[in-house]
Amino acid sequence: MVTLSENTLQEIEKAASKYVDRKSALMAALWAAQAEFGQLSPDVIRAVAEVIGVSNAHAQGLATYHSLYWKKPVGKYVIMLCTNIACTLMGAETLLEHLEKKLGIHEGGTTPDGRFTLQEVECIGSCGNAPAMVINETFYYDLTAEKIDGILEGLK
């Protein structure tokens, strides 16, 4: 059994107050729970479903529909590298391979020390400064392999 913190519950109620139907706050509730637990395990989703008042099946269905809800544990830093068309044209695929080699993991994986998760993502709206990536909530633009090395160095 997972219990949501007072803080998360408050945030969920605040979100719910913005809609005529509290079911609308399910997405915000999943965001809040993810912020607290770092991921949305089936137990966390079940706890959220109960607070919102929807079936567990509904909440699981919604969580798995969206790519930004993590359904399994992720590293301290989640590297989201865009490989959509503008970024691919500007060399993102080479950077993906560079990151895989550097971190010793495949796309979708997490380093054994739990520091980095590497994810290939669709367009992140930074196409004028491609290739681009997001690490947690910070955007990095006009990437090269050297630039990426420097960025990761700075995170250690």
Binding site: K18, S24, M27, A28, L30, W31, Y65, H66, S67, L68, Y69, V121, E122
Partner: peptide
């Protein structure tokens, strides 16, 4: 007015 935040689905 309020913001509704999506979670990644085109």
């Amino acid at each position: 007015l309020a913001v509704h935040r999506g979670a990644g689905a085109y």
